[in-house]
């Protein structure tokens, strides 16, 4: 790891004043240290926001939920109100990485981690996402890569929390010293590599992610998230599903189905949602949703298995959200 200057900040304004000349924000530091040890990030200056009290805490308001950027994945997954009303989020945060990493990793850092593609993460490969012109995954090892929505880079969306936050229609609060605060919908937060391969999210280098804000769910809302990996722990998903159902008695008035490990940016599957909306949740409709979610899938040379796995993940998570099935013991976390 290269040597660096650490600006240890206790206020948001203090941190913003330091965010210039290539300085990089550090919160939990989990993903950043990983990239620095790999040599793919070599910042000369880190801005430590970990000691800023204003960025901590999970607050319930009459409008919903405000989660400080420094809330850890453990704090979110164990929060009683989140477990009760925003289960998709407690599930997603509780199944990321390992228990010990969840104790350190913050929601802000989880949302902002760059892709976990092994070519991107290796200092030996100068790929498209690092500003060069070649993607190694198309003709290389691509078993964990995307099956939909990719043209230039098939690395998949890495954040489990984002899969939940797309389902919850969350907003992200960003602040800079020059332009003040702005609120961005999670749907507009990520930049697709086809549009700009080196920019992962709309956040600018002088901006700080301060909070995630989640609107209060409508009455009758039930949700769930499940993740499937090669290992039970410390692994990114090979398939995952976030499901939010607005139920009116037996009928699903509104459905949101999200996937992370299918595409470069978290994908909401309108096809799957169509199969559930206005219908009862049954074995048949849940199966149909899973199948519909794979319409238009174009797997790479080594990941056709995902086209079989996602429908199962979606089917089981729809049934779990509806209270018709227990958590899958084979799901990770």
């Amino acid at each position: 790891m290269n040597a660096f200057v650490l600006a240890d900040c206790t206020t948001v304004d203090g941190a913003l004043s330091q965010l210039k000349d290539g300085a990089v924000v550090k919160a939990g530091g989990v993903d950043l240290l990983d990239r620095m040890k790999n040599g793919t990030a070599q910042p000369e200056k880190l801005v430590n926001i970990r000691n800023i009290p204003a960025l901590r805490g999970i607050e319930e308001t009459d409008k919903g939920l405000k989660i400080g950027a420094l809330a850890t994945l453990t704090e979110i997954s164990e929060h009683p109100a989140i477990r009760k009303q925003y289960q998709i989020l407690s599930d997603a945060c509780g199944s990321a990485a390992t228990p010990h990493i969840r104790n350190m990793a913050t929601v802000g850092g989880n949302l902002l981690q760059p892709v976990q593609c092994w070519y991107y993460r290796s200092a030996d490969f100068q790929c498209l996402r690092k500003g060069k012109d070649l993607c190694f995954a198309f003709n290389g090892l691509n078993q964990y890569h995307a099956i939909m929505d990719y043209r230039t880079c098939p690395a998949v969306a890495p954040s489990s929390a984002a899969v939940a936050l797309f389902g919850l229609d969350a907003n992200v609060e960003l602040v800079s010293s020059k332009r003040g605060q702005r609120v961005v919908s999670i749907k507009d937060f990520y930049v697709h590599p086809d549009a700009n391969p080196t920019k992962f999210a709309v956040i600018e280098p002088d901006e700080l992610l301060t909070a995630v804000v989640i609107p209060k769910p409508a009455a009758g809302t039930r949700s769930a998230y499940q993740k499937y990996g090669e290992k039970d722990s410390f692994d990114w998903a090979i398939a995952d599903a976030g499901v939010v159902l607005e139920m009116d008695g037996n009928i699903c008035r509104k459905a949101i189905v999200t996937m992370g490990a299918a595409s470069p940016v978290v994908r909401r599957s309108a096809q799957a949602e169509r199969e559930l909306t206005g219908k009862p949740i049954t074995e048949a409709t849940a199966r149909a949703a899973g199948k519909a979610a794979m319409e238009g899938a174009t797997p790479l040379s080594m990941n056709a298995y995902k086209v079989d796995l996602f429908p199962v993940a979606i089917y089981r998570t729809v049934r779990l959200a509806a209270g018709q099935m227990d958590r899958d013991p084979r799901a990770a976390g």
Partner: peptide, 16 residues
């Protein structure tokens, strides 16, 4: 040798 900040909310450490 890092320049110290005058902001009370910031303490600059290292790289040494």
């Amino acid at each position: 040798t890092a320049a110290q900040s005058t902001d009370p909310g910031v303490k600059v450490l290292g790289p040494g």
